[in-house]
Nucleic acid binder design. Structure first.
Length: 267
DNA sequence: ATGGCGATATTTTATCGA
């Protein structure tokens, strides 16, 4: 029996288009719990059988071809929460989008999060992004205040580069989303509440990324962004033995534009 | 030390992504 739980988060950019690659990666990476984002399908289109065949239990939240989040676990999956209290609606569709799913696996509550992109600083989507993060932070703060020993991981595609070194050229991102001060302040609310980025200490930058655009040879040129993060409560942060970004998974035909981010948790 | 956008539905063009 291993005394370590391996958790990963990965924006897969379509579960259906990527299912072979996801299964292959699950098998070779020895992952116990995987949070995925951008499944891009409805619940009845999600290839759950492919994962149950590998011994995983599945919780998926989807609505249509956009967004979609899931958790896969081979160590049990309990108390599934679809969305979070107060999660804002996207005004254009007047719907709460499938961007958050949480569950407890082996004593740890994992959230698979797909934070709104924001698009541009003057787009309604940007205000939506900030409101969405603020409401999530309200919940996260309350969870920790009500149980200071709670083991909670807030994981996924945050669509925020917290530091200038988290993009390959900060000048390219002047007046762009993902690096603006309001977005960074929204992210820092989680740190102020006590949550820790448990990946960065094991993967220091500069030049360390989790996403590379498909266009303009961004990956071979090593021009990426660190926007996928794992934040945990202090009690869980104390259990992190190791972390890495599986950059190799970005290589080759049929790759997602994001790489998996992995942590090893001491039980 | 990798490879010149990709996925999906609204489908031959639009929408979204970051």
């Amino acid at each position: 029996m291993s005394d370590t739980l391996r958790f990963a988060t990965w924006n897969v950019n379509s579960a259906r288009a990527r299912v072979d690659r996801i299964c292959a990666w699950l098998e070779k990476s020895n992952t116990d719990v995987l949070a995925i984002q951008e499944t891009k399908c409805k619940d009845n289109q999600f290839p759950a059988d492919r994962f149950t065949d590998l011994g995983f239990e599945v919780a998926h939240l989807g609505a249509n071809q956009w967004n979609g989040v899931a958790l896969l676990s081979r160590v049990g999956i309990d108390d599934v929460q679809r969305g979070f209290p107060g999660q804002p609606e996207w005004s254009k569709t007047e719907s709460v989008e499938p961007r958050a799913i949480g569950a407890t696996c082996a004593g740890v509550t994992f959230w698979s999060l797909y934070v709104p992109n924001g698009r541009t600083l003057d787009d309604p989507h940007y205000a939506y992004k900030l409101e969405w993060l603020d409401e999530l932070a309200n919940n996260a703060q309350q969870w920790l205040e009500s149980d200071p020993e709670a083991k909670i991981a807030l994981t996924g595609d945050w669509n925020i580069a917290p530091l200038d070194e988290d993009v390959w050229d900060i000048e390219v991102f002047r007046d762009a989303t993902h690096v603006s001060e309001p977005e960074r302040r929204a992210y820092e609310r989680f740190l102020d509440a006590g949550y820790k980025d448990v990946v960065r200490p094991f993967t220091p930058g500069p030049g360390v990324y989790t996403y590379w655009d498909y266009t303009q040879l961004r990956f071979p040129r090593r021009e990426g962004m660190r926007i996928d993060h794992i934040l945990t409560t202090p009690a869980l942060a104390d259990c992190i033995a190791d972390a890495h970004i599986d950059r190799d998974e970005r290589k080759g035909k049929g790759a997602s534009d994001h790489a998996p981010v992995v942590v090893d948790i001491k039980k």
